[in-house]
Design a binder for these strands. Structure first.
Length: 203
DNA sequence: AGTGGGATCTGT
DNA sequence: CAGATCCCACTA
């Protein structure tokens, strides 16, 4: 059996169209290695895809300094500042030269976590939304363009089949719908979320 | 060099 | 539903 980290998702897994990766990421676990050494984890319950021919994609017009990482190889982070006060975290997807990414919009916290003092509803909403998620995980633009592998501040793992992270297969049902907050491409149904999750940003 | 809008969130 | 708040892509 492998090996140090059987669960860590590798670069090749992300090297597919964003519309394939986005639904597959639901149920996977985002891991944040914080500056203070703490490891924070959350199960991804909501994603959006952005890709070629998509007017809502930051790289729709052309390559710029901000969106350059989206043109690079898959498995890197793309973090940008939105509305002057929030950050959004994306995973770069597809092959090099194809600008695309998946926005991670919401996380469900693991059951046994430090925030057990909070009410269940408050806790479920701690990372319900792309801005809140980045605030909780202390993600800002200094974490953009870093590779998502163990040893870096961020990486993603497949659900542990026997562990507490896994979502019960019985209740696992995805909803596909339109993306949130867009003025262009608003009708494209490239948003996915885990049906019934209390951590989804919006229904 | 100036500017307007943005893949958000919170409180009214 | 307005306001906070800042970066950057676009225009000139």
């Amino acid at each position: 059996m492998n090996l140090a980290q059987p669960n860590v998702i590798e670069q090749q897994w992300f090297a597919r169209p964003a519309t394939d990766v986005a639904p597959d990421l639901i149920g996977c676990v985002l891991v944040r290695h914080c500056p203070n050494g703490e490891l924070l984890r959350g199960t991804i319950v909501e994603t959006e895809a952005y890709g070629p021919g998509d007017p809502a994609c930051h790289a729709y017009r052309k390559r710029t300094t901000r969106n350059a990482v989206m043109f690079g190889p898959a498995g890197y982070s793309y973090v940008y500042l939105i509305y002057g006060m929030y950050h959004c975290f994306n995973v770069v997807t597809d092959r090099e030269g194809v600008a695309s990414a998946v926005l991670i919009r919401a996380l469900a916290l693991p059951d046994a976590d430090s925030h057990s003092d909070l009410s269940p509803t408050t806790r479920a909403r701690l990372a319900a939304g792309p801005g809140k998620l980045c605030r909780w995980l202390e993600i800002d633009r200094s974490l953009s363009q870093v590779q998502l592998v163990r040893g870096q501040p961020l990486w993603i793992e497949h659900p542990d089949r026997n562990g507490q992270q896994a979502i019960s297969p019985h209740s696992f049902e995805l909803v596909q719908t339109t993306r949130i907050g867009l003025t262009q491409g608003a009708e494209i149904p490239w948003r996915w979320y885990l049906k019934g999750s209390a951590a989804v940003s919006r229904l």
